[in-house]
Design a protein around this nucleic acid. Structure first.
Lengths: 186, 186
DNA sequence: CTTACGACTGACTAAACAGTCGGCAAATAT
DNA sequence: ATATTTGCCGACTGTTTAGTCAGTCGTAAG
């Protein structure tokens, strides 16, 4: 039993339910089934725990999306697989997804170094650049394109969560919305 | 001097900077230049202040967008004016915009009655319905379309804020991105 | 067997917090 | 002129909080 992981799991669940500051460290420790002091053994402060949780989740998600999308024959299929993988990950990890959205819209985001954010975005930016160079995608600024794509992903996820669709219907919404996205950027 | 308004203004500024729970009521009162107790004279609890601030901002924004977009000759121009008005409002009221985003991704959103949300969305849904009936917009579910449009608005706003463009360039990004949006939904 | 180590504990504390309350001064009603 | 209400004040309090610390206990090396 990895108590550090138990603490991260408990914190995730409680943060999503009550918010960062609505969740006392004592409650996190209790939910994780460890002593109060153990939390501060693994994380020097509560803020460090929050940031560590975000970094942990982001790296897992990024890994998942890239693993799933590599080795596609065409450019369009690569982009499509990334889009699908993002959405399926978000559907299977709703707590994680909601946490990152909460984090991104909070003052805590400032704790993540801009260069770190940039580095995690680089693979996507490079890919979009290639698409423009090969004249598949319209020549818009890549960070604008990336913002549009990730916000569409977020929007469709919201839509899927608030409606309780079957697996088949979910898949249809996802592929339909990808075609809309593709129509927008090409 | 409307002390209630002073409190709302101070709260807005501090919430965006430090988050809801990172901002003590004592600090809000101090920033507003009123006594501690005055805050609780106008708002029974801190939570009530937070929710009141959200409702206040939302109604102002909705009013602004609709005032600006009425009386357009064509359907496309009506949609376009709403899109432009949303973005210009967000640019001119960045604190307000960031606050609403923080609020929407927090557990406080649950305090707003679903019917209240639905009512505020109705005009937009009706408009989209009309667009579909007149075969201008592709027949997708209206709430999906609405989600895509509002997330695109949010995304472009993010993009505009993080890059420091001139007024002219800003306008170009906004109109360009509207054409992309229009290509997606028609 | 003895010693050392580090993960882990939970009672504890100092500070911070949301919310209270008795009262005051000015406006309004009688 | 007097009474009543209203808007506002700020010192105060009971509670909650993040974070501390002295010490326990299992393990493993000497």
């Amino acid at each position: 039993m990895d108590k550090r992981q138990l603490l991260l799991d408990a914190a995730l669940k409680l943060f999503v339910e009550y918010g960062f500051h609505g969740t006392p460290t004592s409650l996190i420790a209790k939910e994780a089934g460890v002593a109060n002091g153990t939390l501060f053994h693994y994380f020097k402060t509560k803020d460090e725990l929050i940031v560590a949780l975000y970094v942990d989740i982001k790296s897992r998600m990024g890994k998942y999306v890239f693993e799933n999308a590599k080795g596609q024959p065409t450019f369009k299929e690569t982009v499509k697989e990334q889009y699908l993988a993002s959405l399926y990950w978000a559907l299977d990890n709703q707590l994680q997804f909601r946490f990152t959205e909460q984090f991104k819209n909070s003052p805590y985001l400032a704790r993540i170094a801009p260069q770190e954010i940039e580095a995690s975005l680089k693979p996507f930016h490079d890919m979009l650049h290639k698409g423009i160079k090969d004249k598949i995608i319209k020549p818009h600024p890549v960070d604008m394109l990336f913002t549009l794509i990730s916000n569409q992903t977020f929007g469709i996820n919201q839509y899927l969560i608030s409606n309780n669709f079957s697996k088949a219907k979910q898949h249809q919404v996802i592929t339909d919305s990808f075609e809309m996205l593709w129509a927008m950027i090409t």
